[in-house]
Structure formats: structure tokens, C-alpha cells
Amino acid sequence: MLNTRLYYLQRVSAMMMAPLVLCHIALMIYAVQGGLSAGEILSRTQGSVLWALFYGLFVLAVSVHAAIGLRVIVFETFGLRGILLNAFSVVVLLASLVLGMRAVYAVVAS
């Protein structure tokens, strides 16, 4: 269910997420407190390679972390095993990646 590779990937993705989450929350507070409109936010993010990298990395880390975490929960709670469990993990990974990257594209593409 969880081998050394998956364990390692989950820990590494958590380590990546820790600073990214803090930056993201700080950014949200700053944007709301500063009263930035959606248009003003988009004008800062569109065309920015930095924000594309920041949120692209964020989406990647979240997708890997969530897929492995949900894999364990589904295995222990519902007893899903073997090919079905692997298929579930891949679907969660791909769905999170596609949805997340689509959102990143929407805010950084100019």
C-alpha cells in the first residue's frame, strides 16, 4: 500500500508545501487587506514566470501529496487494493494536476 518510494514522495511533497502554503496564505491576506481587485491581481500575475513557477510547484506538490494520502485512507477505510488502488491513486493525481494547472494557466497566461 505504501512503499519507501511513496513514503519518500509524500514527505518531500509535504516539505515543499510547508513554505508554499505559508507564502500563499500571506499573499491572500495581503491581497484582501490591500483591497486588490481581481483585475489588479491578474495584472500582476499574467505573464509572470515567477508566479507560474510558484503555483505550478504548489499544484505539483499538492497533487502528489493528496494522491498518496488519499490512497492510504481509501485502503484502510474501504479496503481497496491492487490494481483498483493504483488506478484510484493515478486518477486523483491526474485530476488534481489537470485542475490545478488549469487554474495556474488561467491566472498567469496573458
Binding site: M1, L2, N3, T4, L6, Y7
Partner: peptide
């Protein structure tokens, strides 16, 4: 101890 049901569980 690193496979299915091993220490990572």
C-alpha cells in the same frame, strides 16, 4: 520491512 504492510504503514 519496506514493502506492503511494512514500517511505512
Amino acid at each position: 520491512v519496506s514493502g506492503d504492510g511494512g514500517c511505512h504503514s
